[in-house]
């Protein structure tokens, strides 16, 4: 089973784009006949490691908004592999996706392949709409999936 964990605040404009992208990804993967489950949360919390460590989870895709940097030239969806072996110092901050994976590995001895899919965001004001940038990036999901190997995300990420 592919586990999608989407997070953000739907009342803070682009901050909620990851939640929408999570729904779109779920639909797309369902359309391929894959077994998919999606969790939508405001922010990541430690007990999500239990969901990641479930026996039927083969792959995890975290879906989030990233702050589009001023110098960032690629305002598109981005996918990167996520490791459960990344540096520990980052865990001093907010619970991040890699932290969840580290919890799952250390506490439950589970390390399914994991990916981080992000949509760029520029507007985090109060409201429910998305910026043009974020919306355009969401619209590009079919094209992105077309570029990826057909078996993604069920491929090794190392």
């Amino acid at each position: 089973m592919i586990l999608i964990i989407a997070y953000g605040n739907s009342l803070r404009r682009d901050d909620g784009a990851g939640l929408i992208l999570g729904e779109l990804l779920e639909e797309a993967l369902h359309g391929r006949g894959l077994d998919v489950s999606r969790i939508a949360v405001h922010q990541l919390t430690p007990e999500l490691a239990l969901s990641v460590a479930a026996d039927d989870v083969a792959t995890v895709v975290f879906v989030d908004t990233r702050v589009a940097g001023a110098g960032e030239s690629q305002h598109e969806l981005q996918i990167c592999p996520l490791s459960s072996d990344q540096g520990l110092s980052s865990l001093g901050h907010h619970v991040g996706a890699s932290s969840i994976m580290i919890y799952a590995r250390l506490l439950y001895d589970k390390s399914p392949p994991a990916w981080l899919l992000t949509v760029p965001g520029v507007d985090f004001d109060h409201g429910e709409g998305l910026s043009e940038l974020a919306q355009r990036a969401l619209d590009s999901l079919p094209a992105l999936l077309h570029q990826l190997p057909p078996e993604w995300p069920q491929i090794p990420n190392g």
Partner: peptide
């Protein structure tokens, strides 16, 4: 050491307490 003074350091020191803490939150 800040490299180990985090929740992972805590888990490595006492994994069962780490699991219990997660289940309490859950």
């Amino acid at each position: 050491d800040p490299a180990t003074r985090n929740v992972i350091g805590l888990i490595l020191a006492n994994p069962e307490l780490g699991r219990k803490a997660i289940r309490l939150r859950q």
